[in-house]
């Protein structure tokens, strides 16, 4: 049981993180040469805050990737949009109410994750398809509950995630860092995290070792949904308002960020710190392209090309000839 764990903790792990660290550094230097404003405390603070939203989504995605069995969660964006719209409908006047609302949105996400997990493990629907269809259902549910109204008036407490604590560090950034640290510690140091890695590495072997593979896989989807639910709530606090499908793009960005961070799609290997770095890469890239003031279409093209280059250097299947 120690074995796959060791493999994820040893120095190889640091090497996995290296490309994204280098890319982050290169992007920062490039941004700085373009404009002094880019490395201003204010801009970096906002980049870190935007990145931490993606960090939540990536952490959720990472858990599902780690659980293996072609795991992928394409309903993250839908869950985030749902809680971004439905969360503010609850009364949030006092800290107690805020805590209650937070728990409720996490529970909403977790229920979606549970349905995903059951569909995948019990009815053996491929994860890609199950979570894709689930996101349609979730959008339908959101439209049904909100009647298409955007979330406009937010309580002060929720908007508080934008507050600056230290220069460059906002409340949301702290949440993101805490979440990644907690997830990493849980993965490396606790029984539950180790079980997840073992199941992802080799579900058959894990089953033979007496681990309850189905239960652990379903739990991974539940965790993913819960984190996505929380992320949506933070998103609306950050953005100040919410509309239908506002978090759509987070789904595939979270996949890309997790892969850039060195997580293996095959399961069992990966790290949340890597995912966070991957998110930072993507957000830095977007903000540099935005700063260059080029048309949206060209921005997409450049983003796509860079993404293709990063992904191709990071994840290539082995050669057929062996």
């Amino acid at each position: 049981m120690e074995w796959p764990l060791k493999r994820t903790v040893n120095t190889k792990n640091i090497r996995v993180l290296l490309p994204s660290i280098v890319v982050v550094a290169v992007l920062l230097i490039f941004g700085a040469t373009l404009s002094g404003r880019f490395i201003s405390v204010r801009n970096l603070g906002s980049i870190l805050m935007t990145a931490s939203l993606l960090v939540f989504a990536t952490t959720a995605q990472n858990i599902v990737f780690l659980s293996g069995n072609n795991g992928i969660d394409l309903s993250i964006g839908a869950v985030m949009s749902m809680t971004a719209l439905v969360g503010p409908m609850m009364p949030i006047g006092t800290p107690v109410e805020f805590a209650f609302a937070t728990l409720t949105v996490i529970a909403m996400g977790a229920v979606c994750g549970l349905l995903n997990g059951l569909g995948i493990r019990v009815l053996s629907i491929p994860p890609l398809i199950m979570t894709l269809i689930m996101s349609n259902v979730i959008y339908g549910f959101t439209l049904f509950v909100t009647k298409g109204r955007p979330a406009m008036e937010l309580s002060k407490i929720l908007l508080g995630v934008n507050k600056t604590v230290f220069p460059m560090i906002r409340v949301l950034t702290i949440c993101g860092v805490v979440a990644v640290a907690a997830a990493e510690i849980i993965l490396r140091k606790t029984r539950a995290g180790r079980k997840l890695a073992i199941v992802g590495d080799n579900p058959n072997a894990a089953g033979l070792c007496g681990l309850r593979v189905s239960l652990i896989s379903v739990a991974a989807y539940v965790c993913s949904g819960g984190i996505a639910g929380f992320a949506g709530f933070m998103l609306v606090g950050y953005a100040g308002s919410a509309i239908m499908r506002m978090a759509d793009s987070y789904t595939l960005l979270s996949v890309a960020a997790a892969i850039i961070g060195g997580t293996s799609v095959a399961g069992g290997r990966g790290s949340f710190v890597g995912g966070a770095l991957g998110s930072l890469v993507l957000i830095l890239l977007t903000s540099i392209l935005q700063m260059l003031n080029i048309p949206q279409g060209a921005r997409f093209v450049i983003q796509g090309v860079l993404l293709a280059v990063i992904l191709l250097t990071n994840t290539r299947s082995e050669k057929l000839r062996q």
Partner: peptide, 29 residues
């Protein structure tokens, strides 16, 4: 990119779909 360069198809086509939708927007904003 996928068959010769051995990229993962889901991720590679995600990247190229970003490129293609960018192209479409460039052709007709």
């Amino acid at each position: 990119l996928i068959a010769a360069m051995r990229g993962s198809s889901l991720l590679t086509t995600f990247a190229t779909s970003t490129i293609y939708s960018g192209l479409a927007l460039l052709i007709m904003p």
